[in-house]
């Protein structure tokens, strides 16, 4: 299968929308053809080759991958509607990464901007499958209107994490901002660092007693992506059943759940 590497040429200040770059379509093209693809900013149209050095090579792996190297903070809407293969960013990524994605995996070895895995345009459904893993922190509205899949944030998450979440699972190792899970209907948010939940919106925490904890948190790849959620470490620190659960958002009749370490 093909591995496409885009290396940032120079620091781009102007936000660039790369939502048209679809990995399943890119793998049909040569490096030259990819370099000639058009991407837009608010003011200019660019060719991808103006912003990145493009390299393509065959790899001995079943799934294709797209690798972005360098500071991509101005790159927006990467992985929009991503459905297949791996997108890996070696650096920070801008806003709206993984919007409306339905499958595959996006790995960010850095920080992510706002609206990670959120909806785009007038759509009312955000991420609908696949996995986003961020080794650093994420901005505001991560998992906004998320419906399916997993978002794994090793560091911190900004305000309005999991706002209007419909389903799916969000893991956060560090702290979270204000308005956590505002308007959450269903789905799961798992926090490595305890957060204060408003009792008007979420039920008081109760101890989680479920074998599902091991199924969800016992996966080796999750331990790698969010080390703070390591189950064994939690059990060592807090004993058996180290998690407690709150359900909400009760103001809209939601029955989503927030897991956090038992205090």
């Amino acid at each position: 299968m093909k591995e496409i590497t885009l290396t940032v040429r120079s620091l781009q200040i102007e936000p660039v929308d790369v939502s048209d770059l679809k990995l399943d379509q890119l793998i049909e093209n040569s490096a030259n053809e990819i370099a000639k693809l058009s991407v837009r900013s608010a003011i200019y149209d660019f060719e991808l080759g103006d912003l990145f050095d493009v390299d393509c090579r065959s790899i001995d792996h079943e799934t294709p991958s797209l690798i972005l190297r360098g500071d991509c903070k101005s790159i927006q809407r990467l992985g929009h509607q991503h459905c297949f293969g791996i997108i890996r960013v070696e650096g920070d990524i801008g806003d709206n990464c993984g919007t409306c994605m339905t499958g595959g995996k996006i790995m960010i070895n850095g920080n992510a901007g706002d609206q990670l895995g959120g909806p785009s345009g007038a759509r009312n459904i955000g991420m609908n499958g696949g996995i986003i893993a961020v080794s650093g922190s994420a901005g505001r509205f991560a998992g906004h209107r998320m419906r399916r899949g997993e978002i794994r944030i090793a560091g911190e998450a900004g305000d309005s994490l999991a706002a209007w979440q419909v389903a799916g699972t969000i893991f956060v190792g560090g702290t979270v901002g204000n308005h956590l899970a505002y308007g959450m209907r269903r789905g799961t948010v798992i926090l490595g660092t305890p957060a204060q939940l408003p009792p008007s919106r979420f039920s008081l925490p109760v101890t989680l007693e479920s074998p599902f904890e091991q199924i969800l948190l016992g996966r080796a790849e999750l331990k790698h992506d969010v080390p703070l959620l390591d189950r064994k470490k939690r059990e060592h620190d807090l004993g058996e059943n180290p998690w407690c659960v709150s359900r909400g958002d009760r103001t809209i009749g939601g029955i989503g759940e927030i897991w956090q370490p038992r205090i």
Partner: peptide, 25 residues
Amino acid sequence: DGFQISKQVQHERADGHCETIRYWR
């Protein structure tokens, strides 16, 4: 009775193959 939770969990096998399994709680 409406309080059940459905979760789809992606599992990575030893052979590298990923499989999404749906659970009910």
